[in-house]
């Protein structure tokens, strides 16, 4: 009986083994790909939430997405969180609510608990008595801590549209 069982194992066709093998490998890759897509989407949601907070003038929501050691580069200056809170944040919120912005798709690259997201944009409108017509780029570095993505660095750059 035992020998019969062993024979039964031997008789499993090789192609069945290959199919099973392929299913396991492909399944693993698919699961990994799906997980990466989910995480990339979560990163995009953080970036979107940050911009929504600026447009809505919600400084609390905006600051809650920035890590304590965040570095923000814009308009030739560098700010940490405290300086940004008392510095450019108010101006960024005014600008975001006054000047419509069209943004490209956000490209996210994941590397474990780190992600970077970049996009390009055009901004056209009026800010006070100033006409704005610019195109720019945004880079954010985010890290995942306790399953939450936080913004660690932002770099905005722009130039007048030609």
């Amino acid at each position: 009986m035992r020998g019969s069982g062993a024979n039964a194992l031997i008789r499993i066709p090789l192609h069945s083994f290959r199919l099973a093998l392929a299913a396991v490998v492909v399944g693993g890759m698919t699961a990994q790909h799906a997980e990466a897509q989910t995480e990339a989407q979560r990163v995009v949601e953080v970036v979107d939430a940050y911009h929504a907070a600026l447009v809505n003038g919600d400084s609390t929501a905006a600051l809650s997405l920035l890590s304590e050691d965040v570095t923000i580069l814009e308009s030739g200056g560098v700010e940490d969180k405290e300086h940004y809170r008392s510095g450019h944040l108010a101006g960024d919120m005014r600008f975001a609510s006054a000047v419509p912005r069209e943004r490209s798709e956000i490209r996210v690259t994941l590397l474990g608990d780190v992600a970077w997201a970049w996009s390009t944009n055009t901004a056209q409108g009026r800010m006070g008595d100033r006409e704005v017509n610019s195109r720019g780029a945004e880079l954010m570095v985010l890290t995942r801590v306790d399953n939450r993505w936080m913004i660690r660095a932002i770099h905005w750059s722009s130039r007048a549209a030609r």
Partner: peptide, 14 residues
């Protein structure tokens, strides 16, 4: 200014 996170790093320069 350099920052390291595992196999990732970023540097900000003037």
């Amino acid at each position: 200014q350099t920052h390291f996170e595992g196999n990732f790093a970023w540097a900000v320069v003037d």
